[in-house]
Every structure is written in C-alpha cells, then in structure tokens.
Design a protein around this nucleic acid. Structure first.
Length: 304
DNA sequence: AAAGGGCTCAACCGCTGTCGC
DNA sequence: CGCGACAGCGGTTGAGCCCTT
C-alpha cells in the first residue's frame, strides 16, 4: 500500500493544464523558487487539500476559493507540470541521433533509471526520455535485432543464452543445466569510453561517447556509472545471500539498515569489469578478486 | 468525408526513500 | 524506534492527433 493521495480527488482539477494555470504556476515559481510543492498550490492560487489536514472550515474555504478561481491542482501535479513542461531550460524538439545513441548506451548501463539518464541529457526530462524510449528507441533497437531490455542480440547464439540461464538476471530467470566456461562467452562490450574527467561544463549532451562524468550534484547517478578510463565489460553476476548467513555475522548495524534489510535481500554484486582489483582484495561473499561493489542492496543503486 | 486503428506524450497513480518529530 | 509527511521515481493511462482505408 502506498501513501494516501496527496489531494482529495473530488476537489482537484485533472487533465490538461490551461494557459492560465501555467502562468500562475510560472509566476509563483519565479517569485519563490521550486520546492514545497504541497504548499505551493495554495499560494499560487491553486491548492491541494491534504486528507489529514482538511478541517471542515478549511474545506469550505477551499470550495469558496475554487468557485472564484476555477483552479484546483494538487502539489504533485504542479511539480510535474513544472519539471516536464514549464521549466525554462527545457530543450524542445526532436531528439538528435547523438542523443538517441547516448540514451541507448546509458540505458544499457543503468536500465530504466530515467531520471539518471535525463541527468545526462541537459534540457530533457525523465518523462520525455521514458516516452521516447517506449515509442521510438525500443522499435529502433528491435529493428537492429537488439533486445531493448537486455541490449543483446534478439537471436543470439545458444551458448550465451545457456550461460545466462545458468546465471539468471532479472530479465532472464529461467534455468538450464548445461554450463559453459566464462572465457568462451561473448562479452557485451558497449565500447563506451568512460573518462575520469571534469564535469560537463558545456552540457551539450550530444556526444556519442559517455565521456564526462555525471554532475557532482547527482552523486547517486555517479555511483551507478563507472569512471575509469577503459573499455568496460559489463558482464554482471548477482548472487543472493541467505538471511541466516548474514545474521550469523552478528554485525551491529543501524536501525535504518536493519529496516532496509527487512525489505530487500542482501545482494552481492561482483562486477566482472574486466579489471582486476588493484589491491588484490577479494569479495568476502563470493571470493572473486575483481568485485568492487559487494554486499550492498539493490536499493543502493537507486536513482532517487 | 468518415471511420477506425495506431501513435504520441502529458498527466496520473502507486510506490519508495528520506527526513523530522 | 515508530510514524507521518513529503519529494521524487517509474509504470501506466487516455485524450487527441495522424494516417490509412
């Protein structure tokens, strides 16, 4: 179950925004800046009604106000409208081929982390990229014979399929009994040069290389990418650790972490990046020498 | 010209993570 | 430590547009 809706549906406008509503929102944000989306609508002439705070007098006031203004939008709707449509730095128009390729490469690295991908494409929003992916790029990849989810050939050799059956991923969870040496497997080489350079000052977002690192303002996105000047082999193995084994370690972790642990199993990610760990350290969970991100939970890679 | 099927994209919904009390 | 409020994310929906018949 999620949280209760941020507004009472009966008292809010839905659907397309009018120019008047847009202008009201722009004026308010120009004056006060972004943030406090829940309180913004009231101040801007639209308003939200929290189900927890709607006293009857306030409700009557809201209804009275709405009859005058004819505007009712919840804060969430305001935020979305601003971010996806009204923001002055938005780039309008078609995606360029370079942007296409960058999106494809970023998606192959990050999956459906639209907000992180959008962070690498100045002037584009996560919603826009998500829509564009679903309507254009998916088809483009399929026409190239590439699976848009796995970024692997649609009718790839049986050997690789067999390997993945043995090493299931979220996109491929079936099982098989045969085994193939890792060395024989085709390696997904995105041929992306990931540089350890300075932040993207130009913000052009038009390069087909994934050269500049993610902006410092987006540290989680930075975590998700790899900043080493090399070609990256993104073969990835994921192993689930039993809770009991973890509990046996008897670690004294924070309550927040214990709460997190209740939600998701500990995942050992050993990135076979084609890079040996310089320090020669081993992952304590799987004993692989090239693991550098081990023993964290899937949410640790989250984008928000 | 009309019908209807497909496509696009703005907006909504449900959920998670974080923070403050 | 538990709970509620909030911001933000990704998936989904549906109105309107476009194209074909």
């Amino acid at each position: 179950m999620g949280r209760s809706p941020c507004c009472e549906k009966a008292h809010t406008n839905k659907g397309a925004w009018t120019k008047d509503e847009d202008q009201r929102l722009i004026d308010y944000i120009r004056l006060h800046g972004e943030g406090c989306w829940r309180t913004l609508p009231k101040a801007a002439g639209t308003f939200s009604i929290s189900s927890s705070s709607s006293s009857s007098s306030f409700l009557i006031f809201c209804i009275f106000l709405s009859s005058i203004l004819g505007l009712l939008r919840c804060g969430k709707s305001c935020r979305l409208r601003w971010i996806n449509y009204l923001r002055p730095d938005l780039k309008r128009g078609n995606f360029t081929d370079d942007e296409d390729e960058l999106i494809i490469k970023l998606h192959s690295l990050l999956g459906n982390k639209w907000s992180v991908i959008a962070g690498r494409l100045p002037g584009r929003t996560d919603n826009e990229i998500k829509n564009y992916w679903n309507t254009h790029i998916k088809r483009k990849l399929i026409s190239r014979g590439i699976d848009p989810q796995t970024h692997r050939p649609l009718n790839e050799p049986a050997v690789a399929a067999t390997y993945r059956n043995h090493h299931p991923t979220p996109n491929n969870s079936s099982s098989s009994s045969s085994s193939v040496p890792i060395a024989e497997l085709p390696i997904m080489k995105p041929a992306i040069n990931v540089h350890s350079s300075q932040p993207d000052e130009e913000g052009s977002g038009t390069t087909t290389e994934m050269d500049p690192p993610l902006p410092a303002a987006d540290p989680k996105a930075a975590t998700a990418a790899v900043f080493v000047k090399t070609e990256v082999n993104l073969e990835l193995s994921i192993g689930l650790l039993p809770f009991q084994a973890e509990a046996a370690r008897g670690s004294s972790r924070s309550s927040a972490e214990s709460r997190l642990r209740q939600r998701s199993p500990l995942v050992c990610l050993c990135y076979q990046l084609g890079l040996e760990n310089n320090n020669g350290e081993c992952c304590r969970n799987c004993q692989r020498s090239y693991g550098w991100l081990c023993g964290f939970r899937p949410s640790a890679l989250g984008s928000s």
